[in-house]
Design a protein around this nucleic acid. Structure first.
Lengths: 126, 126
DNA sequence: CCTTACCTTTACGTTAACGTAAAGCTATAG
DNA sequence: CTATAGCTTTACGTTAACGTAAAGGTAAGG
């Protein structure tokens, strides 16, 4: 089965159909139509997954569209490709910054937890 | 020198003074005052750094406030502490999800770059 | 004394990312 | 045949996170 309805995708990724249509309005998705009804291919499904992954990472929908478009070069000219490579570099450095942020946050959380447990212990004595 | 003006912090972290005041409106910062003027301590500066780190990770300001408040238990009761530990667990699993997302995205970007460079080569032949 | 450079509060405006309601088509089950 | 379930478009509403004036206090420099 290589196709999905909008509500199937909505259920699978735990978003509303409104959200999926919104992404289409912004040009991030372009599913086929059977009559008036949207029909999603596995490729559409993958695009949706990428969009939501981007969201979890704090990317704007515009950012996500740019990234997703990077995955399909081939019809571009040389200048565009060079711009794409630059964009990829930029994204990579941003992601590395995030990795650094996350490791620091995790460290902080560990410390906070230790402090919490300590507080619980001495609190239990009262 | 253990104090900062609002514009010093704004410059250091590359945000506007409006942004910093906004964080105060939402209860994320509470600097001292000299007369009417805000005076920021190193601790305030650290809180601001944490807020902005959270922002880079896609956290809402409310999320950030919760996390930051985790760093200072001590006056809480047992129930609050237990809730804090739960919140820490939740944050940790969210961050681990992000780590996974990022590693996948980085992988995808690498592949996209390879594809780009390939396209550039064959394009150069024309 | 007055300009320049800060600081302040108050308050309306803006953008992104949807939510929500209204109104209607379509098909299948009872 | 009609009622229920799922699809559609259109369009106004909402929330978060600030932006952007407007209007004014304060202190140092020429």
């Amino acid at each position: 089965m290589a196709e999905y309805s909008i509500s199937q995708l909505a259920k699978e990724f735990d978003v509303t159909t409104r959200t999926i249509r919104h992404y289409e309005d912004l040009g991030l998705l372009a599913p086929a139509r059977r009559g008036q009804t949207r029909v999603y291919s596995p490729a559409d499904r993958t695009r949706l997954r990428l969009i939501l992954r981007g969201k979890r990472l704090g990317l704007s929908l515009d950012d996500s569209r740019e990234i997703i478009d990077m995955y399909e070069p081939g019809k571009s000219n040389v200048d565009q490709l060079k711009k794409l490579i630059d964009a990829i570099q930029a994204q990579r450095s941003k992601l590395n910054q995030q990795l650094d942020d996350i490791s620091k946050l995790l460290k902080d959380l560990n410390q906070a937890e230790v402090d919490c447990i300590e507080a619980l212990k001495s609190n239990g004595k009262n």
